[in-house]
Design a protein around this nucleic acid. Sequence first.
DNA 1: CCTCAGGGCTCTC
DNA 2: GAGAGCCCTGAG
Length: 291
Amino acid sequence: MYKFEEYSEGIVIKDVKDFNIKHIFDCGQCFRWNEDKDGSYVGVANKRAVRIIQKDNDIYLKGGKAQDKDFWEYYFDLKRDYGEIKNKLKNDDVLNEAIKYGEGIRILNQEMFEIVISFIISANNRIPMIKRAVENISRSFGDKIEFEGKTFYSFPTPDKLYKVSADEFKSLGVGFRGEYIASAVKDIVEGNISLDEVSKLQTDDAHKELTKLKGIGPKVADCILLFSMQKHDAFPVDVWVKRVMQHFYLAPDVSLNKIRQFGRDKFGDLAGFAQQYLFYYAREFKGKEGF
DNA sequence: CCTCAGGGCTCTC
DNA sequence: GAGAGCCCTGAG
């Protein structure tokens, strides 16, 4: 069982299992962590800037505070037994293979508003571009956090973005999604939708509510459900998962909605976890075997 | 159910 | 250099 300890520069989570920072930060669920040459990651989560260093089964959170241990436990989903999840998914031959590549994946519990905006930006976009836009928005409207002699920025609250125009968002690199972001912020601040309330709904109902917002279609809604609302039966179908599903399970012309239904039926409560292993797996094949 | 346009940048040719 | 494609959605 893992445990938190303090060390000279922060806190450390000792004896973690099923935990690999590269797999976690590289499986497409988050946009605010950047890898350094030494393999450590620096980033900001809910106003906390830290450097994360993995040494075997110990996770060092440089700059982490002892009073934040509950937060990090939640953020990294530490209470969940990923070994058990993987054992169940391994009954499927494709997953059995996929898990070998991303065995240390965990689904982060991220802040809802940040995830809503980040995944609106993700539509028809590339990961480096998404990261840049999210960073620009944070730098312009978030709070300063000093760490390691540099200035980091928290992702802004809805209020901070309320008066920001679509054109201003566009100037920060979000492209045509500027209108969607401005509209979603307006709906959230004015109370046309409550993310807290949505998160309490059943997955299908929550999905329906989220897709009422401009810029949120079925895929983005599934990402929000999975990465910030703990709806682990959500199955986001992006291009990579689409390719992997069509390659291993389905015909090449099956629609996105059919793939989504297939995944949810096949993997049930574990669909979201399966999706993450499949996404990571698919990206390993980039440029090979027709991917 | 379908098709298509829509930042801007990067990779491919 | 042009062209395709990008963790896709909205409009038609």
